[in-house]
């Protein structure tokens, strides 16, 4: 997000920002959605499910959390910003203990 001298003066004087920056921000948001072809409902659903999964492992601040689409250079990224209140260490157990990681190391061994 770039700021120009005019933007800063407008901010100091509590004036509305020049409309070009509003246009830029609105476009970036709408294009992120257009490009990903995700509807707001689907994005909401995904956001909920992501939060549910994360909440199994760590306690997150749901109000502060944000899952959004960001776009730069025609690449769209899903960005999640989820402040962690505390981790749930000791309460959860690994579902499939070390087995999986062993397999992985075996795989790499074979390659090398």
């Amino acid at each position: 997000m770039t700021m120009t001298l005019r933007d800063i003066i407008n901010k100091l004087l509590r004036r509305q920002p020049a409309s070009a920056s509003t246009a830029r921000e609105r476009l970036q948001l709408v294009l992120a959605h257009d490009r990903s072809d995700l509807s707001t409902e689907l994005l909401d659903q995904m956001r909920k499910e992501i939060l549910e999964v994360v909440a199994k492992y760590v306690e997150i601040d749901v109000d502060e959390g944000a899952v959004s689409l960001e776009t730069e250079d025609r690449m769209t990224a899903l960005v999640a910003n989820l402040p962690i209140k505390r981790t749930m260490t000791g309460q959860i157990q690994l579902k499939e203990p070390p087995k999986q990681s062993e397999e992985e190391t075996e795989g790499t061994d074979q390659k090398s």
Binding site: T4, R6, D7, A18, S19, A20, S21, A23, R24, L27, Q28, L31, D73, R74
Partner: peptide, 18 residues
């Protein structure tokens, strides 16, 4: 209008559309 930042600048448009 561009100079007054009341119109998307050339860089704005080329950056967004890449």
């Amino acid at each position: 209008m561009m100079a007054n930042q009341e119109m998307l600048s050339i860089n704005d448009v080329t950056d967004i559309l890449a």
